[in-house]
Amino acid sequence: MVRYILQKLLFMLVSIFVLASATFFLMKAIPGNPFQSEKNIPPAIQERLNEAYGLNDPLGVQYLHYMNNLIHFDLGMSMKQQYVTVVDIIKTGFIYSLQIGIFAIIVAIAAGVLFGLIAALNHRKFLDGFTILLAVLGVSIPSFVVAPFLQYVFGVKLRWFDVAGLNDVTDFIMPVLALSFLPAAFIARLVRSSMLEVLSADYMKTARAKGLSGRVILVRHALRNAILPVVTYIGPMTANIITGSVVIEQIFGIGGLGKFFVNSITNRDYTLIMGLTLFYAIILMLARFLTDIAYGFVDPRIKLTRKGG
C-alpha cells in the first residue's frame, strides 16, 4: 500500500514536470504579450517592461528560470495584477470555486444516488421513466442555457434569489443547482443501471433466500455495490465541475478561479496560466488518486497493486 502510494506520487511529479514544460512552450507560441492594448506602449517603455518581467531572455533561459522557481515552489507574480502573486490569486479565487464546487459535488451525489435508486426500485414503472427522462434532460441541456434560465426565472422574475454574487447562503442555491445539474443526472443513470444489475445478481437472490429483510438487503448488499461506479466517476466529475464553473462563475458573477481560465490567456499573464494549469492538474490527479484508494476500500476485490488505471 505504502509502496503503491509512493509510486503514484512519484509519477505525479513526473507528470507535472511534463505538463509544465508542454504548457510553457505552447503558451509562448501564441503571439502577444502581457502589456498589449489597443494603444501601443512606446517601444522604449515596452522594452523596459519586457526586461522587468524577463521576457527578453531567450526562451530556453525563461524556461529554466521558471522551472527553477517551480522547484522552489515559487509560482511567481502575476504579470497583469501588479504585486499580486499567482499563489494569492489562486488562493482567493479558489475559496469561492471550492465552496460552490463542494456543494455541487454533494448535491450531485445525493440527488444522483437518490434518483437512481428511485428509478431502479421502480423499474419499468412511471417513476422510473420520469426520473430517467429528468436525468437524460440533465445531460442534454448545456449549463450556459440552464444558468441564465434559472437566473431569469428565480432572480429577475420571481426575485427569490439575488441575481449575482455570493454574499448570502441563498446565493449559493442557483449556481450550485446549475453546476450539479449535469453530474447529478449522470450519477442517477449510473446508479440506476448498476443497481438493476446488482438486484438481479445471484448473491442478492441468496440474501433474499436467507430471509434478510428488504431494507438490509438494499443497504448492505445492493447499494454498496451499486455505488461503485459512482466512486469511479469522482475523477471525471471533478474535471466536469471545474470546467462547468467557468460558465457558472461568469453568469452568476462569482469571483472564483473560473474566469481566469480565459482571462489569463487573453491577458498573456504567463505566470498565471502556468500556475492555473499546474494547480488544476494537481487537483485532477489527486481526485483520481483518491478515487483509486477509495475504490480499494469499497471494493475488496481490487488490490492496490494493479498496474495502470
Binding site: V163, I251, G253, K259
Partner: peptide, 10 residues
C-alpha cells in the same frame, strides 16, 4: 461581474 446579461439583470 463580467457578463452583460447578468449586469442588466442586476
Amino acid at each position: 461581474v463580467n457578463d452583460s446579461n447578468t449586469e442588466l439583470s442586476m
